[in-house]
Nucleic acid binder design. Sequence first.
DNA 1: CTGAAAGCGCTTACAG
DNA 2: CTGAAAGCGCTTACAG
Lengths: 332, 332
Amino acid sequence: MVTIKDVAAASGYSKAMVSYALNNKGNLKEETKQKILQAAKELGYVPNSAAAALRSKRKNVVGLILRDISNPTFVQYANYIEKTLAEYGYRLSIFTTYGQKRVNDAIISFCGGGRLDGLIYSVVALDEKTLTSINQYSTNSVVLSVSEVSNVEYGAYIATEHLLGQNHSIVAHIGSPGNHPNSNFMINGYKRALKVHGKAFSPDLIVQGGYDLEDAEKAAEKLIRKWGVPLAIFTASDYAAFGVLNYLRRAKLKLGKDVFLVGWDDIPFAESVGLTTIAIDHEAIARKSVYELLNELEPNIELPSINIPDYELIVRESCHEESGNLLKNGCH
Amino acid sequence: MVTIKDVAAASGYSKAMVSYALNNKGNLKEETKQKILQAAKELGYVPNSAAAALRSKRKNVVGLILRDISNPTFVQYANYIEKTLAEYGYRLSIFTTYGQKRVNDAIISFCGGGRLDGLIYSVVALDEKTLTSINQYSTNSVVLSVSEVSNVEYGAYIATEHLLGQNHSIVAHIGSPGNHPNSNFMINGYKRALKVHGKAFSPDLIVQGGYDLEDAEKAAEKLIRKWGVPLAIFTASDYAAFGVLNYLRRAKLKLGKDVFLVGWDDIPFAESVGLTTIAIDHEAIARKSVYELLNELEPNIELPSINIPDYELIVRESCHEESGNLLKNGCH
DNA sequence: CTGAAAGCGCTTACAG
DNA sequence: CTGAAAGCGCTTACAG
């Protein structure tokens, strides 16, 4: 492994000079700098960033703690966060918890282990206890939670409202799992729409989905056993909506005839199946979280301000009868 | 930040002893060890893994270089690789290239920067040049490529064969992008099936898809403009098949009537839309790559042997007429 | 069974 | 404009 020492020897300058040249610091004359850079290049020198981090305390990497990355929404967030971070010279390191304790410990050790400058974590990824430990060991952390930056209640309201507007007599909800602000706001919006439309609310109308397609599939089954078809469902995520599709397929029920859906997130796959959904600018949300963190990491740097437009309803074919749904059949 | 020095002071032992206790090395008496561990716990000590890595040369993290993680197949691989690695005390760090040069440089600097013990990279993620640099700087690397561990030609053959068996007169192929072994084997299998069934091959039957849904959408458009409907298509990935669905929706064509599909990978979403596909054990493939790497990293460790069952056809509704496709409509 | 010391590869005041 | 030196937080022979 070629080190700064080798470059120093090859160029005839000191390690200090090499370091300055490489990092564009100090004030060496251009010629010296070029010589050093040349020597580094010839030797194929790659700085040991771990050593640099140890010494300078700046690691240039921030961690992102997610529950999992099976849900494409989280992949989107991760991509946008990575992209934004890159603009400011930081790399992203993704951690997935799956809610497992063991994994959380690993995260703590990594986060507190001096390899991260900061942390962005999804509300649903961590339990209370781990969150406390993390905040204890890692100085800079920022939460990624839509309800902090957008009006989730409103989004849920327009989703439910839309279904109600199609004259579906029963509109149920498959909620997001866990008991965090996001899901509560969503339920509130859902309930408000029911009320405005003079529909009675019943606790049986809400089933809490889980994190996997199978959880949503089960939730759909439960709902349909209870309420029968036709049934309209507002799901807390497009991902969950796909779980509902799984159930429909298994039960030989038809979307747009037996069941009507409005999802949440507008994942890329939503369009493929004509899923009506609630969209918001994920990039803006991702950027906002990154800027918030950057604000702590480098207080003197000027950051653009971010405006996050409100939730929007994307109408496709999954929620009403008269439509040109792309998938044939079911009409033998 | 509490360091090993603080723990040493608090426990009354030397830094060396603390290190031994923490890492279960040396032979200190149990009592001493417990005292030290206790002190560490009370202080909330978290080892600085960067420092440990610098000194010991063991980082406990391996990198995974992927093109992107929008395709759920790669997410699956990443998950399984992470899981397997965790069993052996390694963390996974995911890099995405999107084929961009800039990003590749960042990867080189990270990989060569002494933060990684080893590397697993997807064939499609890197260009020749970057690959060369990586192999130059990073000693241990392993390629993740299905064609190295499975019979891709056979998989493509049974996919095409199935479509042909449904009496579709024209069976086209949307190939995987780039010019790597995987796509070539796939094309070979596709062509062989055509031949066996006495179908003439034409270069126009194959359109190379890209990496995004939009690329596949365009490929489908091109194919359908050329060949019209009904048309059967074997896509190199389920992800691409979803891109085809996008086009169908836009062109108001029906799956299972105008277009028939067989995908590849059996991603979780494939089931939701009744997509017929080719499946293989992704976990086994992921494990195999990890074991291969581990074999280099820790030659004296005993690794289970991995058997990867052959490709399998999962028949759902996307490829034939008589079916119970879950999505209604299209039959006005 | 325990500790002093060297050193991993860098960066950064500091002195010149 | 340049270099010697200290030190980041660990691990690991080595001596006792």
